[in-house]
Every structure is written in structure tokens, then in C-alpha cells.
Simulated assay, not measured.
Amino acid sequence: MGTGQGTGCGWVRFRLTRSELPDAKTFRVTFRNGQWHIAFAVVPEPTPVPGTGEVIGIDRGVTITAALSDGRTLNCPQLTVKERAQIRKHQRRAARAKKDSPEKAVEYAKVAKLKAREANRRKDWCEKTSAMLARSYDLIRFEKLNIKNMTSSARGTVEQPGKNVAQKSGLNRAILAQGWGLLRQRTEHKAPGRVQDVPAPYTSLRCSACGWIDKNSRKSQAEFACSSCGFTCNADENAATNVAAGQGGLPHPRRTAGAGGATMATGRSSAREPQPIWVGIPFF
């Protein structure tokens, strides 16, 4: 491929990952981690609406990347145990090497190559998953998360150092490795106007069968058992069902369940809200 006037790389061969050349006016050639990449700037066509009337709710988490309201769970691929061990090995070797030495640069380059592999897997998964969602559902609802605030540093300042900094850093890395933001962004690109955000509060504490809200219903990360009606299911699936129904945000009015029925809430952190019982996912 020619690069015109000035300096350039001359004519190069590349592997085309699509059936034909895209209709693009610009392209970018980059060199990363020992490999050349060429990217064409193309505005993709929106995915046609399937017309089934189906609504899907998506609850995002660290243990399960995306739990769908239809019971499916999708997980973003991560580095294998062997690859993580290799990263630690190269990081130790880089730490022992002399400052600004070629050996240190080589070890850091190997670490960067492995981390780039993880990023490529995450991008590929987000592309395929977002395409599947856009092709399968008329309306796609995500739990609204402020990822920037959730992954902010807990280091603090010299005057006011943060607490549990190492644990918070590990949680931040785990969140960013799931590709939450990229999945939401690419789904919106492929299904414009068909993606909605549902407020996150109480989606994981609300019973998707009867509507009661009680923190004691969330038995563990994976178990949900309603303290009012006894409904049980996977906790992530329950939250995704609430997202699909648009059941999110603060309850109004806020109530707790008493011995004689529903009473107004006090200052207790666990609250319940009586809701009409609904069955299935409403069509819009």
C-alpha cells in the first residue's frame, strides 16, 4: 500500500478480515507490540430491528460479566492462569534488571504483548456480543453504572491517604477487564435508539416476582430468596429481570413490611416496597 509523498512504510501486504474492502475514505497504520495494524475508518450500518418485540435486561458484574434476563450468562474472556504467571515472571525479571537496560525493556515488552492479547480478546468479545444483542432483541436495557466513579483510585493524598488501596486497585482492574463500558457503547452503535439505561439502585434487592425490596433477600453473590413470597433464583438473573422491566431507582413511597402489613419506613437500611405482581417481560 502506498503512503503518498513524504516518509512512509512503502507498499505492504495485509490480511483482510472482511470479505471485501470497506468503503472508507481514511485509514490508519500503527505498530504495536511488534505487529503492524491497519484500520479503516468506517461508519457501520445500524443492525435491522428483529421485530419480535422482545426486551432483554442486562446486569453487569465482575463474577459474571453480563447476566441476561432470559437466564443466559455471558463472560468476557480473560488471560489464562499460565498467561498470568508469565506476566508475573516477566515483571519480576524487569524489576531485577538495571535501570534503562535493554533487558528491562525486553521484559516490559513481553508484559505489554500479553496484556494487549487480553485487550484484543475483550474487544472481540464485545463486538460479537453487541452484534448478537442488536440482532436478537428489539429493546436492550442495561443497568446504569457510573464506571468512572466505580474505578476511581482510592490512593488519596499525603495528608489523607486512602484505605484498602491494594484491594480497591484489584477491584478496579477486575471491573475494567470486563469491558462493561465498551459493550454498552458498541451495542448503542449497532442498535441506535434501542438501548436504554435503567437506574441501578435496588435492582439486585427487588424481587422480580412480587416486587418486595429487602436486603436480606440477597443471600449471597449468586443466591436470591425473597423474604416475602419465597421466590428463589440466581441473584444476577433476578437483577437482570428487574432491569428488563425497568424496575430500578429509589422506591416511592418507601415502605417496610410489618406484622400487620406495609408500614412507612424508618431509618433502617433494608426497605421493601409492595409492587403489583407481573408475569413475563412487557412488550413495547
Rank of each mutant, 00 (worst) to 15 (best):
M150W: 07
K110M: 12
A222V: 07
T151E: 03
E118Q: 15
R184F: 08
A134G: 06
K104Y: 02
R117M: 11
K219H: 09
L183Q: 14
A116H: 14
N146R: 06
G162Y: 03
R122H: 06
E223T: 13
D214G: 08
K190N: 04
M132L: 14
N216A: 15
A177L: 04
D214N: 12
R186T: 11
G156E: 00
G162Q: 07
G156A: 01
G162H: 05
K128L: 11
G181E: 04
K115Q: 15
C226M: 08
I175V: 12
K115S: 14
Y202I: 02
L183W: 06
K115G: 14
D100G: 07
V111G: 06
Q221T: 03
V158K: 15
S208Y: 10
G181H: 01
G156T: 02
W212Q: 13
R206S: 05
A209W: 06
S136P: 04
N149F: 08
V106Y: 11
A222N: 10
I147N: 12
A105L: 00
T203Q: 01
R218T: 04
N216C: 13
L133S: 06
G193D: 01
T129G: 09
R186M: 11
W180D: 07
V195W: 00
G181C: 01
R184Y: 10
P201K: 00
Y202P: 05
R186F: 06
S153A: 04
E107T: 00
T203H: 04
R155H: 09
V165P: 09
A116E: 15
D214P: 01
A177V: 03
A105K: 06
P199S: 08
D138Y: 00
G156R: 00
L176K: 07
E223G: 00
A154Y: 05
R173Y: 08
A177T: 04
R135C: 06
S217I: 02
K128S: 14
I213P: 03
N172L: 01
G193C: 02
N216P: 05
A154W: 09
S136A: 13
P201C: 01
T157P: 01
Y202L: 05
K168N: 13
E103W: 11
L145N: 04
R122G: 04
